[in-house]
């Protein structure tokens, strides 16, 4: 594994709100092609951690190095330009556009055509948009209004949008939240396949432990803002501390259960 370049390196990341430590000195690394899950009970600091990585939140201290660049204090759009794709816990798409147009906007941005006042968007990167939609299995829906899509399809559309800038890293916040069990597995398989094929690193948070243990190469476990364990699924499964936390919380994970702190 050491031959694979490090995409993301987090060192001693901390953030507190009014004396409460939401995230406390968290450090980890993520390599190209690796699928890394960030888990923890409600209020563990997953969302805060995530928001700091994608630029929506600024850490109190610590370093984030993304593809060799220090990203602390950069805006989400600047981080995107570095080659980071994002999906959200609750999908964020453009409901007044068609499915294809949703992807085309991302491609327009990637092609630095945002201030082009005269061209036709309909013709812009039409094939590329189609290819991305095909990749996530949404090719047949390209002309449909995005506002009419079922939720599972919206998730896949989001993935296509996230792939538009040919990212090196995907940040996915609860990618399967709100989906039916079969859809979850399909979506994660799809994500894993794309990640492996294109050597994209994936960092995701997730409540559904089936999804986590089936797809993650490695797992980070947060509790009360601190990283209490990390390792392969087997290592984490065997960790007594992790077991204690999760047994204390009850082992039933409701995927629709929203995270409290920092949400």
């Amino acid at each position: 594994m050491s031959m694979v370049p490090t995409l993301l390196s987090v060192e001693a990341l901390s953030k507190s709100y009014g004396g409460v430590h939401a995230v406390r000195s968290v450090s980890f690394e993520l390599r190209a092609g690796e699928i890394l899950a960030l888990i923890g009970p409600n209020g563990a600091g997953k969302s805060t951690c995530f928001d700091m990585l994608n630029g929506q939140n600024i850490p109190d201290s610590g370093r984030i190095t993304l593809l060799g660049e220090d990203t602390v204090g950069r805006k989400p759009r600047a981080i995107w330009r570095l080659g980071v794709g994002r999906t959200f816990q609750i999908t964020a798409t453009f409901p007044t556009m068609t499915v294809r147009e949703n992807v085309q906007v991302a491609l327009v941005s990637y092609g630095r055509q945002l201030f082009n006042l005269w061209g036709s968007t309909a013709a812009y990167a039409r094939e590329e948009a189609g290819r991305l939609l095909d990749l996530v299995g949404m090719g047949a829906y390209a002309g449909r209004p995005c506002g009419e899509l079922a939720y599972g399809d919206l998730k896949r559309l989001e993935l296509a949008i996230a792939l538009a800038n040919q990212p090196r890293l995907l940040l996915m916040d609860e990618p399967t939240a709100g989906m039916a069990p079969r859809e979850r597995i399909e979506l994660m398989r799809l994500t894993a396949r794309i990640a492996r094929e294109q050597s994209i690193g994936v960092l995701f948070t997730e409540h559904d432990m089936d999804v986590v243990f089936e797809h993650a190469d490695r797992i980070l476990v947060l509790n009360r803002g601190s990283l209490i364990a990390q390792g392969s699924p087997e290592e984490v499964r065997g960790n007594p501390q992790v077991r204690a936390i999760y047994l204390g919380e009850g082992l039933v994970y409701d995927a629709r259960h929203r995270e409290g702190a920092g949400a």
């Binding site: 989400p76 995107w80 453009f94 556009m97 990637y110 201030f115 006042l117 309909a122 812009y124 949008i161």
Partner: peptide, 27 residues
Amino acid sequence: VIVFSPFGFALRATRDSPLRSEAIGIN
């Protein structure tokens, strides 16, 4: 013409979802 230009789409994207548009690099 501007409405249907790339700029028009960027503008609508910003209106529809500030979160998503920021996340695809739109200022």
